[in-house]
């Protein structure tokens, strides 16, 4: 994929989500000047572990959490900075999101938004990162069960990989862009473990159609596909708040049926294009090149709309 500048405009909402820093995404996503950070950079809560590995630290450990307004509604937000340590989960990075989710029960925001941008667990703090991911998933279940939508936004440089992919799968609603990639093992990991015949990580078109935003939207792994602009993510996050499913037996039974049906229908597919063809897409090869508008038209034309129990 090539990343054309979305607009020559300098308005924050027109800026590329993919290119923006986590802080710029938050500033543009929320109503102007409403973001208030918890444990901000001046508090210097930095990783105690990275210096052992001779690695530089970041004031926010790559995770920015706080509150703000979305079209006037109070929301809690968490944003990962994918350029710092690949947005990976370490001890502090993970604990900030754990605390935010736990706080949601008392704060009762209109929604809790997670701006994913992560390669997974930070190896230098692997045990702490892995455990934090488990704590986050449990806290998301509790938060959702209390009726608070937890909404994930995926469109950053690092994608949403490893434990990040599992956390995303725990959210009530996911918004993804062309640049968003969502999976557990990344292409390089699969290639390293199984060889280039299994997955050629340099084949970018293969990566995108296997893990990219359009494929995830088509199979029902994501609920909305949006342009790579901060404004598009903002609009989709707003639209998601009233529709996000709660966390109960009915939702999970429906997800079980959805995932079983996917295995039965597509379990023998060799490539994403084959799945798209079976979904009723007439020209699967053209899908990667479609604009968001044309892609939405295509989604509307399919015999069945993806359903999103999760």
């Amino acid at each position: 994929m090539d990343w054309k500048p979305v607009a020559l405009s300098t308005a924050p909402l027109d800026q590329s989500w993919y290119e923006a820093s986590a802080r710029a995404r938050l500033a543009g996503l929320l109503d102007a000047d409403t973001f208030e950070e918890f444990i901000g950079p001046a508090q210097r809560m930095m990783s105690p572990h990275l210096p052992l590995f001779e690695l530089p630290r970041a004031f926010d450990d790559g995770m920015i959490v706080g509150r703000g307004r979305l079209d006037g509604r109070d929301v809690l937000v968490a944003a990962q900075e994918g350029r710092f340590m690949g947005g990976a989960f370490g001890e502090i990075h993970g604990a900030k999101l754990v605390g935010l989710l736990r706080a949601a029960l008392a704060v009762k925001p209109a929604a809790l938004l997670i701006l994913f941008d992560t390669g997974g667990v930070r190896l230098q703090e692997a045990n702490a990162g892995e455990t934090a991911i488990a704590e986050i998933m449990r806290a998301i279940a509790v938060t959702r069960a209390a009726g608070i939508p937890v909404i994930g936004l995926i469109g950053g440089r690092a994608g949403c990989y490893g434990g990040g992919g599992l956390i995303a799968g725990t959210c009530a609603h996911l918004v993804i862009s062309e640049g968003g990639r969502l999976s557990v093992s990344g292409p390089e990991v699969i290639e390293t473990n199984r060889g280039a015949e299994e997955f050629d990580s340099r084949d970018r078109a293969l990566v995108w159609r296997t893990m990219g935003g359009k494929h995830r939207r088509l199979i029902g792994a994501a609920d909305a596909f949006v342009d790579d602009t901060i404004g598009a993510f903002r609009a989709a996050a707003l639209a998601a708040i009233p529709t996000a499913p709660t966390f109960d037996l009915a939702s999970l039974e429906a997800e079980q049926a959805r995932l079983e049906a996917r295995l039965a229908r597509f379990g023998d597919a060799q490539d994403a294009t084959e799945i798209w063809g079976r979904l009723g897409v007439n020209d699967p090869a053209a899908v990667p090149g479609l604009t968001t508008e044309a892609f939405d038209t295509l989604l509307d034309s399919l015999p069945e709309r993806p359903h999103h129990a999760r």
Partner: peptide, 13 residues
């Protein structure tokens, strides 16, 4: 990964 392993693992959890 093509078929959405992240969803299946998250669903089990």
């Amino acid at each position: 990964e093509l078929l959405g392993l992240n969803e299946y693992l998250a669903h089990l959890a």
